[in-house]
Amino acid sequence: MPKPRIAGQFAEVPDENLVAKFNDGSREAFVELVHRYQGRIVNFIYRTLGDFERSEELAQESFLRAFRKADSFDSKYRFSTWLYTIARNLASNELRDRSRRPVPYAIEDEDWASAGQSYVDVKSSTGADPAHVLLNKEMKEALEKALEQLTGDHRMALILKEYDGLTYGEIAEILDTSAGTVKSWVYRAKREIYRILKEKGVI
């Protein structure tokens, strides 16, 4: 069982060095990696699947696989990309299974920001000022609907860009495609979401 984490012990150590330390026998190094990425991985899967409980399970599985396969990690790659790739594979498998037994996509209420907090100062020529993006039930439902309609790849590309702030190149590695394709997926995903939000009358 892991010992309590010593705060700051590895604070400045790059991910890839932590993997090397872990492979040399430092369990604490892996605990630090978990600490760094647990929130990101859980939320990446959650936003992909729309199911928080399941996302925690798959995030655990992602870390477990990384734990088991750490000795095969190639340090010329980034650890984050490698870990996201594991998570992406698990999420994709889950989506594939779900295509056979559909599960509703749902954003949990408590994860929904309270009204007004996400104001973005954009003066829009469309009149759709983001300040008027209504953070209400209708918006939440419309967004759920919109995300549900995206393909798995489009949804993941969008999430990795929008929430995780990865570059197109990093996303391309994770989704096993080209940066150009990622650019196109993110663009199309956002256009599609816009279309649905407009159609639902929430923007």
Partner: peptide, 16 residues
């Protein structure tokens, strides 16, 4: 602008 609107909508979904 439309793309920005979508970003604003998505940003309302905070981390779990």
């Amino acid at each position: 602008d439309e793309l920005k609107v979508v970003s604003a909508a998505l940003s309302a979904w905070s981390d779990g």
